[in-house]
Computed example of a mutant assay.
Amino acid sequence: MSYLLTLSKSLSLDGYKKINFLCAGARGNGKSYGTLILVAELGSFPRLDKNQLLGTGQLPTQIYCVDFKNSDMARLAEFLPAGRVATNKEEAIDVVTRYDQLMHQRLDFIKKKSFGATAGTLGMPMYYLIIDEWSATNAAFNQGITRIDKDLRYKWNSLITDIAMLNRVPGFGLGIISQQISVINSGLNSSIQEEAGLKLHFGSANMSSYRLTFGNDIQIPEMNLETGEAYAWIEGLTSSGYVIPFAMPEIEPNKLWNYLRQSLSCTQDDEKYLFFTSKGQ
């Protein structure tokens, strides 16, 4: 499977079919660190051996980031091309506008292929827009009453909605990280919540917090989760029944940074990968 994404040795999924993910949890429980591990995997697709973190890099996922904390995600700018990472509102609009434009260019390309073609059936590299601390980011756009503030707010909301509605066929994913990922408490667009194929909640929390992440119909076991441990809801697998507990790999920070360097340094190139296909159709 070209888009094999492994959460743990016993839990893996098709990253293309579960194109959008939501990641919740209180600060310090490992959600950003866990996402960086996923970025290392995504950037080196396909992964032929699920016991190895890095893959061959023949279908490398193209990574874009918004990180208003200017923290771990923003540091990926060291490996990513210019214009891929945003740390303020103006930069975020530029990055997300570029991401949305590329998505539409790929959609136009796919429409010229055989009926029913998708980025997945064509074997095209995925794209991912990762937004860290969604609640704070969204709140920043909702502040201000000037014409410029309102214009930025409108552009942000319309761009994110457009991506959430159209991103499955072209393989342009959204990864949202936030302490809470409910529509009510975080300002998360309901279309993003509904389109998420993977939902993660890191660390122990009260039952109401878990319900905000997973909904009221999912059974949640009573367990004490440590930092780096999480519950997972995977579309089609846990639509009913229990969420799945798992632990992300324990990787020292310096080693993870080296993995990210190997994964991203030579694989991020829109000109090369936007229209690249590994299968003829």
Rank of each mutant, 00 (worst) to 15 (best):
residue 99 Y to S: 10
residue 87 T to I: 14
residue 44 S to L: 10
residue 42 L to S: 11
residue 134 W to C: 09
residue 51 N to L: 06
residue 31 K to A: 09
residue 98 R to W: 08
residue 127 Y to M: 13
residue 59 L to T: 04
residue 46 P to D: 06
residue 43 G to F: 05
residue 42 L to P: 08
residue 58 Q to S: 14
residue 71 S to V: 01
residue 31 K to P: 10
residue 18 K to D: 00
residue 13 L to M: 06
residue 63 I to A: 10
residue 39 V to S: 04
residue 121 T to D: 02
residue 102 L to P: 03
residue 82 A to P: 00
residue 73 M to I: 11
residue 71 S to G: 02
residue 66 V to M: 02
residue 126 M to A: 13
residue 87 T to V: 13
residue 79 F to P: 02
residue 87 T to N: 10
residue 19 I to G: 00
residue 127 Y to V: 07
residue 99 Y to R: 07
residue 106 R to D: 12
residue 116 G to I: 03
residue 63 I to N: 09
residue 68 F to A: 01
residue 121 T to F: 00
residue 30 G to E: 05
residue 113 K to C: 12
residue 70 N to K: 11
residue 130 I to P: 12
residue 97 T to C: 11
residue 106 R to H: 09
residue 27 R to K: 02
residue 9 K to F: 02
residue 62 Q to H: 13
residue 47 R to C: 10
residue 70 N to F: 01
residue 63 I to K: 06
residue 24 A to V: 06
residue 41 E to P: 03
residue 128 Y to E: 06
residue 68 F to D: 02
residue 97 T to G: 12
residue 32 S to T: 08
residue 36 L to M: 07
residue 113 K to S: 11
residue 82 A to R: 08
residue 75 R to I: 04
residue 12 S to D: 09
residue 55 G to T: 08
residue 131 I to F: 12
residue 19 I to A: 12
residue 92 A to F: 03
residue 82 A to D: 13
residue 92 A to T: 00
residue 30 G to I: 03
residue 108 D to N: 15
residue 125 P to M: 13
residue 37 I to E: 09
residue 64 Y to D: 00
residue 130 I to T: 15
residue 16 Y to I: 10
residue 112 K to M: 02
residue 122 L to F: 13
residue 41 E to Q: 15
residue 121 T to C: 01
residue 88 N to V: 03
residue 9 K to L: 07
residue 17 K to F: 00
residue 65 C to K: 04
residue 79 F to L: 07
residue 64 Y to A: 07
residue 110 I to N: 10
residue 63 I to Y: 11
residue 68 F to N: 06
residue 93 I to G: 05
residue 106 R to M: 13
residue 15 G to V: 02
residue 8 S to N: 08
residue 31 K to H: 11
residue 86 A to G: 08
residue 119 A to Q: 09
residue 125 P to V: 10
residue 123 G to L: 13
residue 92 A to K: 04
residue 107 L to Y: 03
residue 89 K to P: 04
residue 11 L to Y: 12
residue 103 M to W: 11
residue 130 I to V: 15
residue 89 K to H: 03
residue 50 K to E: 08
residue 65 C to G: 10
residue 57 G to P: 02
residue 22 L to Q: 06
residue 31 K to Q: 12
residue 63 I to T: 04
residue 91 E to R: 09
residue 101 Q to N: 14
residue 78 E to M: 05
residue 28 G to R: 07
residue 47 R to K: 14
residue 29 N to E: 09
residue 52 Q to R: 15
residue 43 G to D: 04
residue 61 T to A: 15
residue 79 F to T: 02
residue 62 Q to F: 04
residue 12 S to N: 12
residue 54 L to A: 09
residue 83 G to K: 11
residue 11 L to W: 05
residue 61 T to D: 14
residue 86 A to D: 00
residue 107 L to W: 03
residue 119 A to T: 01
residue 9 K to C: 01
residue 29 N to T: 13
residue 8 S to Q: 08
residue 65 C to M: 14
